[in-house]
Amino acid sequence: MITYLSNNSETVLAALRQHIWLALLPVLLGFAIALPIGYLGVRFPRFYHPLVNVAGVLYSIPSLALFVFLPVVLGTKILSPINIVVALTIYTVALLARTVADGLRSVDRLITESATAMGYRRFRRLIDVELPVALPVILAGLRVATVANISLVSVGALIGVGGLGQLFTRGFQLFYLEPILVGVILSVLLAGVADLAIVLIQRAVTPWTRFQGGRA
């Protein structure tokens, strides 16, 4: 495996780099899109159930089907990485829109009411009070979405763009175990590192959660 790595370091590093941005760019895009959608599900309660249902349906579309289907809709080339990014963004939105809505709904009414009574306008109340209080729930969803994306990128290898997944297809084509092992190990490591990074960010931005549940 070491020999394989040293002989193919450039290929492996390029695959890893591609894997990282193919997985993480959709997380950022998806999060940015999910925030307003999730908020709408709370602001207008009758949108909540449709939102949950649509998100569920979207998430249940098989990834390979979406990768193949998107070029038809978007007019992109079948080998374009845009297909992967869009597909994973859709999954991220499906996952996070509901998480954002649930997170915001979990904020105690007493807290939002006292914020209103102190003179917060709706938008600033959302930014200063509701989102920060909902952050532990939202970040938990973000962890799930990030790890899921990192594993889904590999599927893209079947249509030619798939980061570390390309190491799997190559290994299968050449009946050669090393690239497959390297690909698996690096995917798992990447998922672990990304997960840990979000946990550390969560600790840093929500120090108050450490005291919750001690004294009510």
């Binding site: 007493l110 807290i111 009411e113 006292s114 914020a115 209103t116 009574a117 102190m118 003179g119 917060y120 306008r121 009070v129 920060p132 209080v133 952050l135 929500t206 108050w208 919750q212």
Partner: peptide
């Protein structure tokens, strides 16, 4: 509304403090 409320102190049952601050 918001300006009016900023000029009126409000104390609520259970205090309604912001847990993240």
């Amino acid at each position: 509304e918001a300006l009016l409320r900023r000029g009126i102190g409000y104390v609520i049952q259970h205090a309604g403090l912001f847990p993240h601050r």
